[in-house]
């Protein structure tokens, strides 16, 4: 079956056409438009966050990329969680198209999309997913830090989440404190490569909290305090702070993930979300999983950040489970759910 998916929950607008078969997922089209591209293509400067004003640009984007005769079996769109003004443009375009083309629409949760980025990058999951359930999924991004027990397709239990800052947010803010620029994650891990993580003794907040929640705001403040104490810092200090910070983050994430893997007797571990790009995190989880003899899956770099490909795959498994499929007059009431929490305790 062919699925056309749209994603616009944050700063990018993305479009994918997936051709899904029982044991293969092929992306016929996969495009991400950052707002910069849109601005260039349509020659107007629009305020960064005013996605509402981009509602008009998604239609030309769609028509430029899909010939009207192209037949898709399903449309899919991210309806949440995310910024309402951004979600609105994707949702409006998708439901209008679905209604006009008389094609059913699948409403997809953005976080579920992140989980399914693993299916895009690991054929083994497409062919034999049931071998790997229950799976423990660590979702780490700019806005989310969640440990989820995935018992089967579409069957989730939330084990824990951050009580303050998300991991990606902590990376960005530490980069800001160190004046390293944006986006902070890649820069901090780059600098960490050259640093010594034993120089600064940073805390591991909540590491022994006895639950699966996380806290990263204290780590941010610990970096702030370290910098205040030093007053002047040189390149080497920056490298060392980055290394110490990243080490603390990875320590906390890996520690809780492995504890949960043990407690729930999972058959695999998965990583998802933008921070899945972090090499130290991947290597560390890989290593711990190997010790426990557990398969470890992670998404390729191009699918760890926000993209529409992961949304199309999540839509595919929703379709197989006959979930969240909307058609006919019901399409008119499809709306963004900016606070959609799919994972429940």
């Amino acid at each position: 079956m062919r699925i056309l998916a749209l994603e616009s929950s944050c700063d990018e607008t993305a479009l994918t056409i997936l051709n899904a078969q029982a044991d293969s997922l092929v992306l016929e089209k996969d495009q991400v438009y950052s707002q910069v591209d849109i601005h260039q293509q349509f020659g107007g400067v629009v305020p960064e966050v005013a996605a509402r004003q981009h509602a008009e640009t998604i239609i030309p984007l769609l028509s430029a990329n899909i010939k009207s005769e192209e037949k898709v079996d399903y449309l899919a769109v991210t309806t949440g969680p995310g910024l309402i003004t951004s979600l609105l443009l994707g949702v409006t375009a998708a439901k209008t198209l679905a209604y006009a083309k008389n094609t059913p629409l699948v409403t997809v949760n953005h976080m579920e999309g992140h989980i399914y980025s693993n299916w895009l990058s690991n054929d083994e999951l497409v062919k034999n997913a049931n071998k790997y359930f229950p799976s423990l999924v660590l979702i780490v991004s700019g806005g989310h830090t969640e440990l989820v027990l995935m018992k089967g397709h579409g069957d989730y239990q939330l084990l824990g989440s951050t009580v303050d800052d998300a991991v990606g947010e902590a990376f960005d803010k530490v980069a800001k404190l160190l004046d390293l620029g944006y986006p902070g994650g890649p820069i901090v891990s780059q600098r960490a490569n050259d640093g010594d993580c034993s120089i600064y003794d940073l805390p591991r907040p909540m590491i022994n909290s006895g639950d699966y929640n996380f806290s990263f705001s204290g780590l941010k403040t610990a970096v702030l305090y370290t910098l205040e104490r030093k007053k002047k810092i040189n390149t080497e200090d920056v490298d060392n702070v980055c290394a110490s910070f990243q080490n603390a983050v990875v320590d906390i994430l890996v520690n809780k993930t492995m504890k949960a893997a043990q407690e729930f007797g999972v058959k695999s571990i998965m990583l998802a979300g933008g921070v899945a790009a972090n090499n130290q995190l991947k290597e560390s989880l890989q290593q711990e999983a190997r010790i426990k003899d557990l398969p470890f899956f992670f998404p390729e770099l191009k699918y760890s950040g926000d993209n529409a490909a992961m949304i199309s795959v999540a839509a595919y498994y929703n379709i197989l489970n006959k979930k969240n499929i909307i058609s006919g007059k019901d399409l008119l009431s499809v709306a963004p759910q900016s606070n959609w929490q799919l994972f429940k305790k």
Partner: peptide, 13 residues
């Protein structure tokens, strides 16, 4: 409910 930082999502309700 636990209030978490809205930095990335811009707003939470």
């Amino acid at each position: 409910e636990t209030i978490t930082s809205p930095t990335f999502v811009l707003m939470k309700s």
